[in-house]
């Protein structure tokens, strides 16, 4: 399988703190990857860097052979792309904005996704509950025909029924030549989805492994495997 994303020796500092240190990883095309780590481990920062929200880093990010940040932005659909949108804006208007900006945004797909999530597009962002907002974010993110989807904790504050619906939609709408990186710390929700797991701890990648290998060779669930990296810390607490 070809590698869609190659990250090499990525280090990022901000506000006199190292937020990512010497991160190297590869993401194959057509795979769903779980980016697992505790709060503050660096999951969101890594996604921000891949998406092009931060620029002052060392190392390289290559997406489908491209290093140009503007080109990469056009190939990545990041679930935090909506942050900074006006809370007074209606969901329908935001979708129209996306439609006018992103050539690969599909209004038809968005409407289907929104219908699937029972979203009332006339509502303003400020009127949405946390769960509805998440559903809208997922709809907008998946309505773009991107090469790489970055879903940052998409199940945060969502009940189990809605989680299933989100997972169902990810599987339905993900293009064949695309990959998805899902970050979470509720591992059990996404375990069955994953092809690979990347564990990030203390601002660096400590392991990247195939999900099947964890189950077959280590005879562990993904959750158990992930927790083993934090076990020492928890035992000391």
């Amino acid at each position: 399988m070809d590698n869609l994303l190659v990250i090499d020796q990525l280090t990022y500092k901000r506000n006199m703190r190292v937020l990512l240190s010497d991160v190297s990883l590869t993401i194959p095309t057509g795979s769903i990857i779980g980016l697992l780590g505790d709060n503050g481990a660096g999951k969101t920062t890594l996604m921000r860097l891949i998406a092009g929200a931060a620029t002052n880093y060392q190392g390289s990010i290559i997406l489908d052979g491209e290093v140009d940040k503007t080109t990469i932005k056009g190939m990545v659909s990041f679930s935090e792309q909506l942050s900074g949108a006006s809370n007074d804006a209606r969901m329908g208007d935001l979708a129209k904005f996306y439609d006018s900006i992103y050539p690969e945004f599909s209004m038809t797909n968005f409407n289907l996704l929104a219908k699937n999530f029972d979203l009332n597009l006339k509502q303003k962002l400020s009127q949405l509950s946390k769960g509805m907002r998440r559903n809208f974010v997922i709809s907008i993110t998946l309505a773009r025909r991107a090469r790489l989807y970055l879903l940052d904790e998409p199940f945060d504050g969502i009940d189990s029924m809605k989680r299933k619906k989100i997972i169902e939609n990810i599987l339905t709408w993900m293009p064949d030549n695309a990959s998805v990186i899902v970050s979470d710390h509720h591992v059990s929700d996404i375990a069955n989805l994953l092809d690979q797991v990347i564990i990030i701890k203390d601002r660096t990648v400590v392991n990247q492994i195939a999900a099947d290998k964890i189950r077959e060779e280590y005879n562990q669930s993904i959750e158990e495997y992930y927790e083993s990296f934090y076990k020492e810390e928890n035992d000391n607490d």
Partner: peptide, 10 residues
């Protein structure tokens, strides 16, 4: 300084 605008590929 907002993702909503700065992530536009231009």
């Amino acid at each position: 300084t907002r993702n909503f605008y700065r992530l536009i590929p231009v």
